[in-house]
Structure formats: C-alpha cells, structure tokens
Design a protein around this nucleic acid. Sequence first.
DNA 1: ACCGGTACATAGTGACACGGAGTACCGGTT
DNA 2: AACCGGTACTCCGTGTCACTATGTACCGGT
Lengths: 109, 109
Amino acid sequence: MAKQITEMLKGTLEGIVLGVLANRSAYGYEITTWLRDQGFTDIAEGTVYALLVRIEQRGLVAVEKVPSEKGPPRKVYSLSDSGREHLAEFWRTWSFLAERIEQLHEGRG
Amino acid sequence: MAKQITEMLKGTLEGIVLGVLANRSAYGYEITTWLRDQGFTDIAEGTVYALLVRIEQRGLVAVEKVPSEKGPPRKVYSLSDSGREHLAEFWRTWSFLAERIEQLHEGRG
DNA sequence: ACCGGTACATAGTGACACGGAGTACCGGTT
DNA sequence: AACCGGTACTCCGTGTCACTATGTACCGGT
C-alpha cells in the first residue's frame, strides 16, 4: 500500500472527514485515531489538521473549543449547512468516478 | 463545481489509463477521446499526454510509433509486465479505499 | 490558401498529502 | 522535583499531480 494511496487520498480524504463529521462532531486527534483504526495507518497527523484548517476557512465546518482532562483544549468540529452541501456534491462526484472505475475493473472498458 | 473531480483524479487517472491499456493498446488522442465519451468531459488533453510520458519513464508501458493516415504519427502504448503489476496494486489500493468510503456513505461510519 | 480535425508536447500554476519538527498540557513513575 | 508517555494542535518545506494555455505539425476538403 505504498505511494498510490497518497495520491488517491487527494480529494477523497476531505470527503471522508466530512463524512465522519456528518455522523457526529469530532476533534482532530480523534479523527486521526479513527482513520488509523480504519486501516489508514499511514495518514500523517499534520495532514488531518491541515485539512481541518482548510475546511474551516471555507466555512464547511464550525469549531468549538472544548477543554480536555487529558491535555490541551480540543477543537471540536461540526458540519455546517454549506459543509453538508459540499458533502452531497462529494458523494455525487465519488459515485460518478467509482461507477466508471468499477466498470473498468470488471473488464467492460 | 466539478473541482472535486480534479483532486479525486489524482492517483486514479493513472489507474484508469492503465486499466484501459490492460484491455487493448491505445494512443494518447484515442484515450483522451474515450475518457470524454465516458463522461470525463473536463479532462485536459495535456493531462493525458503528461501522464503517458510519466508512466513510460517508469517503465509501466511500452511505446511504438505508428503512422496515421489522418495526421502526425501516433504513439501507441501497451502495458508492460511492470505496468500489469502496478495495475494490480492499484486495484488493491482502490478496493481498500472504496470499501471504506462506501461504508461511510451507508452511514456505518 | 485556409480551416478543422487529428496528434503530440510543455512551461507555469495551484492544490494537496507527507515528513519532520515543534509547542503545550496532563498524570503517573522514579 | 525531574522525567516520560499520552493527549492535542501547529507549521514549514517538499514532491506529485491535474489544469491552463499555448505551440507545433500533419492531413483532407473547400
């Protein structure tokens, strides 16, 4: 699972994170841990934080600072309306791409 | 707003092209036309040519120059053994990613 | 002579994941 | 008190990739 996943995550990681936030609010460290548990073992911590900053600046998420008993305060992100729309668009784009790739995979290319 | 597809194609477009070449040899212009027919209307011609140069330099494809009746000579690409391996790895990586994203989509995130 | 379709090439730009390092807060061990 | 590991976030530099824009060149038909 070498370098191919790195390039594939471009564009999809944002959708994944938005998808997670669609289910429940979460903070960066939590999301990183969740991704690792899902098998994305190579995802860099910095990558997730940078992504969160980006989607916050675009207004796709709202942030709330919440104190933690175990360390520095957490930045808890939740999906905004704009983020929900963006996520819907992501699913449409993803479906389009996945459909065609699956066709190729099944040899009907 | 098909800017999402631009980022999503990073990493996947290479796999798509390799997938096409797994079925039959093809040249750049032909591949571009095929992609457009498949619905990838925004794929730039230059993108495909640049990709082909890249995978040729990595030894994933072999090239043969073939004269055309309608224009300049075509560069016909065919998959090498190394390319076939790379494609297999692509399918593994893709399946891994697609599986997790589909789970998210179905709300089991 | 011109135009449109065929066919390939490439320099510059922007977006994004990654590697690596750093800051800070906390509880438990020594 | 000093140290360490887990928690939690930040930032800079790098490489890769698709896109934009443009250019070259070959060909047949008008």
